[in-house]
């Protein structure tokens, strides 16, 4: 499942350039966390439409590590892009004063949606498309917040597994420090993807590649990687399928949006 990074970069750069010329939004805006995925997307974006058209938004919360903010700032400096640094603690905590909870998932979802809301605000202010940074591993496992970090206008890395994103990032020259980081949503202190998922991306990606891309029978994959592990992944894939789809619309008319009113996303643009 190793990729050709040169050709991958080329098709993504073409894609970003083309999509950013279709609808009058000529800039792109990326939520930059200091992690691998958003750094990779910002590298690709600046190389496609130039740093002058790329906007990075760094949105720490008080649980975000200083290191992440420093890393994000370093990337911004390295690429020479415009950035906004917006602390989301006041907005998020104002809400939780009214609706208190200690539930980490609820708190994390709120943060993810606060960031989404800021990105879409900047999108409209500056005429910039929100560029998604969810990778294929997250999308399949449902490891993301619906209408939060999963929201975007276009996503250039959504068909690359985490390990493939890392391969691409290495080729693009993303700093070593970021390549080596343990993937984390940083929605609470000490959270790591692999800790929460209970499996290393390297292995999960291999399993998903066999199940999804190669469409090998589940039984075969179970035998190869172990029943418990594979079942857990399959369970996550199906249980989170709703997150990957637009809302379900009850069919009443003869031609229904999303069902049999069928046009390409790029129709007449």
């Amino acid at each position: 499942m190793s990729i050709n990074p040169e050709k991958t970069e080329k098709i993504i750069r073409n894609f970003l350039t083309k999509e950013l010329s279709r609808i009058g939004y000529r800039k792109g805006v990326v939520g930059l966390s200091g992690g691998l995925d958003s750094a990779t997307v910002l590298f690709l974006l600046t190389r496609s439409i130039g740093p002058e058209n790329s906007i990075a938004v760094i949105m720490p919360h008080k649980v975000t590590s200083k290191e992440s903010v420093e890393d994000a700032k370093e990337i911004v400096k390295l690429l020479g892009v415009k950035h906004h640094l917006i602390d989301i603690t006041p907005m998020v905590e104002a809400y939780f004063e009214i609706m208190p909870t200690e539930n980490e998932t609820l708190r994390g979802n709120k943060m993810a949606r606060e960031r989404m809301s800021i990105l879409y605000d900047i999108s409209a202010r500056e005429g910039a498309l929100v560029i998604g940074t969810s990778n294929k591993s997250e999308l399949l496992l449902g490891y993301g917040t619906i209408f939060g970090d999963m929201a975007s206008a276009i996503n250039p890395i959504g068909d690359l597994y985490k390990t493939q994103v890392r391969e691409l990032a290495r080729y693009l020259g993303v700093p070593k420090k970021i390549l080596k980081k343990s993937p984390s949503a940083e929605l609470w202190v000490g959270q790591t993807d692999e800790g929460e998922l209970g499996i290393k991306y390297e292995e999960a990606d291999k399993i998903m590649h066999e199940l999804v891309d190669e469409k090998r029978p589940e039984s075969e994959v179970r035998e190869k990687y172990g029943k418990e592990k594979v079942n857990r992944i399959i369970d996550k894939i199906y249980k989170n399928h709703f997150k990957r789809l637009p809302p379900q619309i009850l069919k009443l008319s003869k031609r229904t949006v999303g069902r049999d009113f069928l046009y390409s996303r790029d129709v007449l643009t």
Binding site: S2, I3, N4, K7, T8, I11, L160, Q164
Partner: peptide, 10 residues
């Protein structure tokens, strides 16, 4: 449609 990214290309 371009598909099947692999080590030596699509």
């Amino acid at each position: 449609p371009t598909r099947g990214i692999e080590k030596d290309g699509f």
